[in-house]
Amino acid sequence: MNIVVCVKFVPDSTADQAFESDNTVDRVGVPGLLSELDEYAVEQALQLKEKNEAPDSVTVTALSVGPEGAADAIRKALQMGADAGVHVVDDAIAGSDALATSKVLAAAIKKVGDVDVIVCGMASTDGGMSVVPAMLAERLDLPQVTFASVIESQGNQFRIKRDGDIATEVIGAVAPLVLSVTDQTGEARYPSFKGIMAAKKKPLESYSLADLGVDAGEVGLSAAWTAVDSTEARPPRTAGTIVTDEDGSGAKALTEFLASKKFI
């Protein structure tokens, strides 16, 4: 079985995120890392391998489309236990929208070969559109089962659980398929010392657009089908009033505040 896990290199969300002068996300000035939400995808990919009847016959490939630094995200996945890495890096990719990203990812997945399961995170922590998995499924003509909180599989049969607003659903599908997993699937493992050492010997291939047969004119900022006209930092909130509760004074002040704002 071949599993590809899509991992994105994103600006650290605890650092100050910013935009470049061309309104693209600053991916250089802000430190980057493997998207926290994609760690859950790596974890589930590894568990699929470990729960397989013949784990050694399962290959987990971590795939990332992104700048030079994205190799770090792939390396982290290798340290966690993925078997191989694929990094698509090309200057022409900078500024790609989800449509172009999904096109490059789909081409890279085809290059990996007969893939049975593609595991994605629920959203990237920077763009956060949650649409790449659906777009990938569309491009590869595969079913998608997304926002899984529990994944079960038997051979090529998959069952996932997901918590919707209206209902909790069980969804069934047969591989090949695209999965996306939420942070409800369970904590992602930390790389062990052994894992970190082993990762150094694992294959990490790097491809350009030409290697994948993708026309550079179809991706990147100039080919994006959406254009950002302006970005604006949210004005800082003006400091609020803070009171300390003493013998019920807090509730009283709170009620007065609500009344002054016409909420009651």
Partner: peptide, 14 residues
Amino acid sequence: SVFAGNFTVQAKVT
């Protein structure tokens, strides 16, 4: 509203 609500962005489909 992006980046945890820290920025607002205006965009168009082209």
